[in-house]
Computed example of a mutant assay.
Amino acid sequence: MRLRRTTFALAAAATLSLGTTLPAHADRTVRFTLDELNQSGSHATATLTSRDDGSLHVKITGSGFTPKSPHAQHIHGSTSGHMFTCPPASADKNGDGQVSTEEGLPQYGDVFVSLTTKGDTSKASGLAVDRMPVADADGNLSYERTIAASALPAGTLDNLQHLHIVQHGLDANGNGKYDAAALGESVFARSLGVKGIPEEATNPATCGEVAAMGGVETGTGSTAGVEHAGLLALGGIALLGGATAFLARRRIRVEA
């Protein structure tokens, strides 16, 4: 079911007529699935909650990831109103059957927030693979962190409808590790001056979207939900789940 903009406008008007005031960023929660990309076999569920203190709580749980390996993940998007989405299969320009990081970037946009496990979360940490979550021996991945308002780019919470998440790292040849045997060396890593990084380590593994801008949509392939009584009055929230680019600042331990 799609709640259209007119519904949001009416709800907002009704709330204002009652004299109700809400914090600039009242607690709002969106939940959505991150579906596999590149036949990675990976799937995840993401929950993002904007707090009334301006912080953003992020929780991600998933399975089917390359075991005992780091998986870079970022929020991507725009505060200028540009609509970014998950990359379609047609984004594979070289015909190798994989949408690489560099092929996906035009679709999902630049890094907005680096979802590191500790320390800096800015775009500068997009390559900090040593601070990205690591899947366990069974390929399960769990991540939870609250990012302070001061660490968020300007306009993040006001533009959640333009943002999305993507996770990276896949095991294309099924041998349980990142190596160059299946896809060769990462073109993206090499373009940044780092050699010897397998393409498997940098290609996007999952991506998800909640709904189109202006409404909350459910039952469209991605599981989406919104929890907050004041959400309609605030005009709605729609988060586009997306893709990421990552490269280790220090060499990833791999076996060729």
Rank of each mutant, 00 (worst) to 15 (best):
E217A: 14
T202G: 02
S222M: 11
V216G: 08
V226R: 01
E209Y: 03
A205D: 10
A201M: 06
L231I: 13
G208M: 05
T202H: 04
A201E: 00
V226K: 00
T220M: 04
G230D: 13
A205T: 09
H228R: 14
G215D: 15
G214K: 04
L232V: 12
T220D: 14
T223P: 04
S222I: 11
N203G: 02
V216I: 15
E209P: 00
G208A: 07
G225M: 13
P204S: 06
G208Y: 06
V210W: 02
A224N: 12
N203V: 13
L232T: 09
G221T: 12
E209N: 12
V210P: 01
H228D: 15
S222L: 08
G221H: 02
S222H: 09
E227Q: 11
L232I: 07
H228S: 12
M213L: 13
A224G: 11
A205I: 10
G221W: 08
S222Q: 05
G208V: 00
T223N: 09
P204T: 11
G225H: 10
V210A: 06
H228W: 09
P204N: 14
M213P: 14
G225Q: 14
G219V: 12
V210L: 06
E217G: 10
V216W: 01
G214S: 04
G230N: 13
T220P: 00
A205F: 07
T202F: 08
T218M: 07
M213T: 12
G230M: 05
A212I: 05
A211Y: 04
E209S: 10
A212F: 11
M213H: 15
G225L: 15
E217T: 15
A212R: 14
C207P: 04
T202L: 06
A224L: 08
A224F: 09
T218D: 06
A212L: 10
G215Y: 06
G230S: 14
G208S: 00
G230F: 10
A205R: 01
G214N: 10
N203T: 08
E217I: 09
S222T: 12
G221N: 08
A224Q: 11
L232W: 03
E217C: 09
P204C: 09
M213N: 10
A229Y: 01
A201F: 10
E209Q: 10
A211E: 04
A224D: 05
G221Q: 05
E227S: 14
G214W: 01
V226C: 04
G219I: 03
G208N: 05
C207W: 02
T202E: 09
V226Q: 03
S222V: 12
T218A: 13
A229R: 00
N203H: 09
G219R: 14
N203L: 06
G219L: 11
G230V: 08
C207V: 03
A205S: 15
V226N: 02
H228A: 15
T223G: 08
L231M: 12
C207E: 00
G208W: 00
S222A: 03
A201I: 00
H228G: 15
V226F: 01
T223D: 06
A211N: 10
A201L: 06
T223M: 03
T206E: 03
G214C: 04
G208C: 03
E217D: 11
G221L: 07
N203D: 10
T220W: 11
M213I: 15
A229M: 10
P204G: 13
C207D: 03
G215S: 15
V226L: 07
G221A: 05
T220G: 12
